[in-house]
Design a protein around this nucleic acid. Structure first.
Length: 269
DNA sequence: AAGTAAAGATCCATTACATCA
DNA sequence: AATGATGTAATGGATCTTTAC
C-alpha cells in the first residue's frame, strides 16, 4: 500500500505488484464481465454518476464535489442533486447497501489499493467500472477504499497494541521472578553455613551444549537431565525450547560444583 | 540532464451524519 | 422522544509521483 511517507522504492514495489495487471485486466474479479476498454479513462470522474438503487442518497457539498460532479438522475430514477438545488449546503451521507459493501469488500480483499500511479489509467478504469457496477460515483469508491484502509490499519494497530501489552506483562512477571531469584542467591551467599549443610550431588554432568555443570534430577540411575535444573519457565512465547534448554537458574546446582559456589555463573574465559 | 510547476493520486486527521441501544 | 455511543461517509490539507516544458 503506498503511503504518504512512501519512498520511491516502496512505490516501485507497488508498481511490480500490479505490473501484470496491465496485460490482464480480467485478473481482477470485479472487472470480469466488464469491458474496461469501453469505459472512460482518467477524466471519467467527471462523467455523470448513476444513482444507487439501494441507497439513501443525498447531495454532497464541499470542494471535492466540484471536482467530482454529483451524480445525476440515473436508471434508478433518483435525483442526487435535489438537495443542492434546494440550496441545502449541509453535507448528507448515503449509506451503502449490503450488496454494495460486499462487492467493495471483495475487491478490497483482492487489492487494498485502487489506483497505483504506475498503472493509473488501468485502475482509473477499474474504479470507474466498480462505480458503474455499484451505481456510485468513482469518488465514492475511492473514498470507500480510503476509509477501508484506515479501518484495517486501526484494527492492526489494536492487535499490535494488545500483543505489546501482553509482552510487557510477561516481561514484568519475568523481571519479578528474576529479582526474587537474585535475592535468594544473595541470601545464600551471605550465609555459607546454610549451604554447607546441603548434600553435594554424587555425580556431576556437563551439559554438552553449554559445557556447564548439571545436576541429575534425582538420585536414581536415570541419566542427568540438564534442563531440569531450570527453576520456573519463561512466560514469553519467544523463549522456546532452545532457550529453555539453558539453565538460567543455578539455584538447584550444588554450590561446590567446579571449585566453589557461583563460579559457574561467571563467563568462561 | 536537471529543475520546476501542474495535475492527479494517496494518506491522515477530522467532521458530520445515520443508526442503535 | 431525547440522548449518548458508535460506525462510517465525506472533507480538507499535506505530500508524493508523474508528466510536460
Amino acid at each position: 500500500m503506498p503511503s504518504s511517507v512512501s519512498s520511491s522504492s516502496s512505490s516501485a514495489a507497488v508498481t511490480n505488484q500490479y505490473a501484470d495487471l496491465n496485460s490482464d485486466p480480467t485478473a481482477i474479479p470485479f472487472l470480469r464481465g466488464i469491458d474496461v476498454n469501453r469505459l472512460p479513462a482518467a477524466d471519467c470522474d467527471e462523467e455523470p454518476g448513476v444513482s444507487s438503487p439501494n441507497s439513501t442518497v443525498s447531495s454532497i457539498s464541499g470542494k471535492r464535489s466540484e471536482r467530482d460532479q454529483p451524480a445525476t438522475t440515473g436508471s434508478g430514477g433518483e435525483d442526487l442533486d435535489a438537495d443542492e438545488e434546494d440550496g441545502d449546503t449541509s453535507r448528507k451521507k448515503l449509506r451503502l447497501s449490503k450488496d454494495q459493501s460486499a462487492v467493495l469488500e471483495d475487491s478490497f480483499k483482492e487489492h487494498s489499493t485502487l489506483n497505483p500511479v504506475s498503472t493509473q489509467l488501468l485502475f482509473q478504469k477499474q474504479k470507474t467500472a466498480l462505480a458503474k457496477q455499484l451505481g456510485l460515483r468513482p469518488r465514492q469508491v475511492e473514498v470507500w477504499f480510503q476509509n477501508r484502509r484506515a479501518r484495517t490499519k486501526l484494527k492492526q494497530t489494536e492487535v499490535d497494541c494488545e500483543f505489546l501489552k501482553r509482552c510487557c506483562e510477561n516481561l514484568t512477571e519475568e523481571n519479578r521472578r528474576l529479582q526474587k531469584e537474585v535475592q535468594e542467591l544473595r541470601a545464600l551467599k551471605l550465609s555459607p553455613q546454610f549451604y554447607m549443610q546441603m548434600t553435594p550431588p554424587t555425580t556431576l554432568t556437563m551439559c554438552p551444549s553449554c559445557e556447564r555443570v548439571a545436576v541429575p534430577p534425582s538420585s536414581t540411575s536415570s541419566p542427568p537431565v540438564v534442563a531440569a535444573t531450570r527453576v520456573g519457565s519463561s512466560p514469553l512465547p519467544m523463549m522456546g525450547t532452545a532457550a529453555a534448554h539453558h539453565h538460567r537458574s543455578m539455584a538447584a546446582i550444588n554450590p561446590w560444583a567446579v571449585g566453589g559456589p557461583f563460579n559457574v555463573l561467571r563467563p568462561r574465559s
